[in-house]
């Protein structure tokens, strides 16, 4: 949060070094040959500090969710390293990985699909505690009650099944389940997209409250920039598997530098009729290109209003542009 005093030596709890996650495409029925690859995540370097909220935004298909699953090692990275607390997850043994999982938890988008309909809330929250031997059978009840209170649910609901709860309450259960192992970092993949506006605000408040109280790092994936701006310390904008802009959340969204971020910001409808009708909007043409054979050079150049011939030549690297900001565009200084 902006007004807080700087914390003593912000330590990087999670580091991604040139992470690539490709999905091979096979052709042929009897003799399978690999004919290409979907480059869902294509060279992401990123670090997350303890207690930091990092927003990750981009259109659908840009690789946000694959990146989230790669961080959790649900999908192993094709190359590059995911380093949690100094340990490379790609090289960790099964036992080490199990231990790492405690520190790394996930909240999914759809609270209707991510909770087992045949388990009571108590069973769901007790499962990780017992599986990781955090507490014995006797102490489980106390911890389950505590978790429910933390996320704002009355412990008397512990015997109920997911279908007895509303969407917002289910998302609270999903958050409680993620918190059960006292993780250091939570990856939340569009946790509020499926919820109504008034419920969204409740869940956002809960998440930012938890991050502050428990000194929890949060990777918050969303496509709604105004939500991301509100909750995040820093924001990373993804396009076709790559990060194109990175910086403090307010700064990036109020003063975007990369042409893609500009278009993304300009596409958000403003809830004010006068402002909305007066402003000039950059309407991007077409859909994002396919990650199977991305365009040469900057992947955004076919849709970019500022593209020139040079943009086709090489993939632009993320370069610093202003205080703690980076963007991947070769024409940054020439843009209006």
């Amino acid at each position: 949060m902006p007004d807080e005093p700087p914390r003593a030596v912000p330590e990087n709890i999670l580091e991604l070094r040139d992470v690539r996650t490709h999905f091979p495409i096979h052709r042929g029925f009897l003799v399978k040959r690999q004919t290409g690859a979907v480059r869902a995540v294509d060279g992401v370097t990123l670090s997350v500090r303890q207690g930091e909220v990092l927003g990750l935004v981009g259109e659908s298909g840009c690789g946000k969710s694959t990146l989230a699953r790669t961080i959790l090692h649900l999908i192993p990275a094709t190359s590059g390293a995911v380093i949690l607390n100094g340990r490379n997850l790609g090289q960790a043994s099964r036992t080490q990985l199990l231990a790492c999982r405690r520190d790394l938890q996930m909240v999914f988008q759809d609270p209707y699909a991510s909770l087992n309909p045949r388990m009571t809330v108590r069973a769901m929250l007790a499962e990780p505690l017992l599986a990781h031997r955090i507490c014995g059978k006797k102490d489980v009840q106390g911890r389950v009650d505590e978790l429910m209170r933390i996320v704002g649910l009355a412990p008397r609901f512990a015997r109920k099944y997911p279908h007895e709860f509303s969407g917002g309450q289910r998302q609270r259960i999903a958050i409680a389940r993620a918190l059960a192992l006292r993780p250091k970092i939570i990856v939340a993949d569009e946790p509020v997209s499926a919820l109504d506006v008034s419920i969204q605000a409740q869940i956002l408040n809960l998440l930012s409250h938890l991050c502050r109280e428990m000194h929890l790092a949060l990777i918050f994936i969303a496509h709604d920039l105004s939500v991301v701006r509100h909750i995040s310390d820093r924001v990373a904008v993804m396009y076709l598997g790559k990060i194109v802009e990175l910086g403090p959340a307010e700064d990036v969204i109020d003063r975007p530098r990369h042409p893609y971020t500009r278009a993304l910001v300009s596409a958000i409808p403003v809830p004010d009729p006068e402002v909305e009708r007066a402003r000039q909007r950059i309407v991007l043409q077409g859909d994002p290109p396919s990650p199977i054979n991305p365009p040469p050079g900057c992947a955004f150049h076919p849709r970019c209003p500022y593209a020139i011939a040079r943009c086709r030549e090489a993939v632009p690297p993320l370069v610093p542009c202003g205080p703690s900001r980076e963007a991947a565009c070769i024409r940054l200084d020439e843009l209006p």
Binding site: L225, A267, I268, P269, R281, V283, L284, D287
Partner: peptide, 10 residues
Amino acid sequence: DVTVQAQILE
């Protein structure tokens, strides 16, 4: 997506 939403509204 928001960018596609802008196209459809337009």
